[in-house]
Amino acid sequence: MEYKEVLVYSNIKVEEDIYVLSLIIGDDVKAGQFYMLKAWDEEPILARPISVHSVEDGVVKFAYQVKGRGTKILSSLKPEDKVYVLGPIGNGLDTQKFKGKIALISGGIGIAPMLQIAKGLDGEIDLYAGFNKSPYLIDEFRKYCTNIYVTSEKDEGYFKGFITEIFNPFEYNVVICCGPEVMMKRVVEMCKNYATPVYVLMENKMACGVGACLGCACNTKEGKKRVCVDGPVFKGTDVMFSA
């Protein structure tokens, strides 16, 4: 983990309020890790924890949704602008240990970390991506996935409903899930019925990003864990979801 100033390579709008920011970072990054990003000096006070979408030659890509003041500033970044980064942070996912048929399940911007995960996996990968608006970032997965199932509340031509309605854990050796807590909770429950191993990528508000402030605590069977350094990847059955 390192704190440094890096340059923007590109910042592309892919859908309403959804952007992909590429930063010139040469770090060795594990799938599922994230960075604290800050493209301002004093205001807002805190950096923003943003998951790694994809690692390419000398560039780390972040897919993010504009939600508030910080991500609004991120969305205005231009090539060669400066960004303070702290990272890579978190346990990440040992993608090489998974074999067989794997399901990636995302809700909304929870699709962000899934691309780097898909790139690191061997075996047959199916993506289930749910959106309440128009789908985004799907095309990038075609190279790595056998089947792609998309739901959208907004656009025609997609299944209308929850992604959990079209997913059957019985078919899979491993399930990896990132999205709203209510969705992750449901996926974990479904997987429990078939004893399918399931991993979830948690998020929370964070101040420090190094495990010091305890702001990002998450309830687990073993007590409070820090999403930043004990996670963000947890065994789904260990997490006590609040949703």
Partner: peptide, 14 residues
Amino acid sequence: IRIHEVRGGMLNSI
């Protein structure tokens, strides 16, 4: 929720 950013600072309830 344990932390909440505000203008000019942050609130915490760890």
